[in-house]
Design a binder for these strands. Sequence first.
DNA 1: TCCCTATATAGTGATATAATTATATTCAGG
DNA 2: CCTGAATATAATTATATCACTATATAGGGA
Lengths: 104, 104
Amino acid sequence: MKKTTKLIPMEVLNQVAPVIRNTAHPLRLRILDYLQCAGEPQNVNQITEATDVAQAFVSQQLRILKDQGVLTCQRHGLFMMYEISNPALLHLLECIRTHGKDCK
Amino acid sequence: MKKTTKLIPMEVLNQVAPVIRNTAHPLRLRILDYLQCAGEPQNVNQITEATDVAQAFVSQQLRILKDQGVLTCQRHGLFMMYEISNPALLHLLECIRTHGKDCK
DNA sequence: TCCCTATATAGTGATATAATTATATTCAGG
DNA sequence: CCTGAATATAATTATATCACTATATAGGGA
């Protein structure tokens, strides 16, 4: 291997790996996919309908994604609107869409 | 959201999420990055040198990646040569490289 | 203020993952 | 067949995550 090639520093890997790991969960990926498709902020009820699990469970996942910096939210009256704040994670959806298609 | 938009089926998410989750580990990402940069199969000793942890630990990670279908290996005499068998996972590296750059 | 709707948190037991150490296996050459 | 180099497995302890249920908070309108 060429000595000039630069690997991603371990420091960066240590920092970003947990974000990916925490996002790579079926329900959280569904939420991400839904928000990307929607193209605009969605409230919790809309997001809950896009999955088929209990609202409390969805709220838990939303919080995890918010804690990881993947989503942000903003209150509009009664409604809490969520949107994607770190598009880098959309690479995960791309990964899933191509998974199994290339080379397998 | 448009009704015509198709979300990734839960079945697919359930299947692929664990693969991503298992790959999104600092050392395993380093291995993936190294193998991509190398461009050709590498043996365990080479891979171990690209990290700075014990060989036994590297072997464990290689096995996990192999179990997930991310890598394959082939014996050449004394050496076990590993290579990437599912390039879809390289999206994770892309995700890391762009993480923090866009929108944060 | 009281109530209803929308959303968030707490608590729980089962299960899984992490990193490490010690040890085992496999193969080629002499 | 014995040895040493290369690689793999086992066993272990600490810690984290999963999915679920029950309950709590927060805001708007009557």
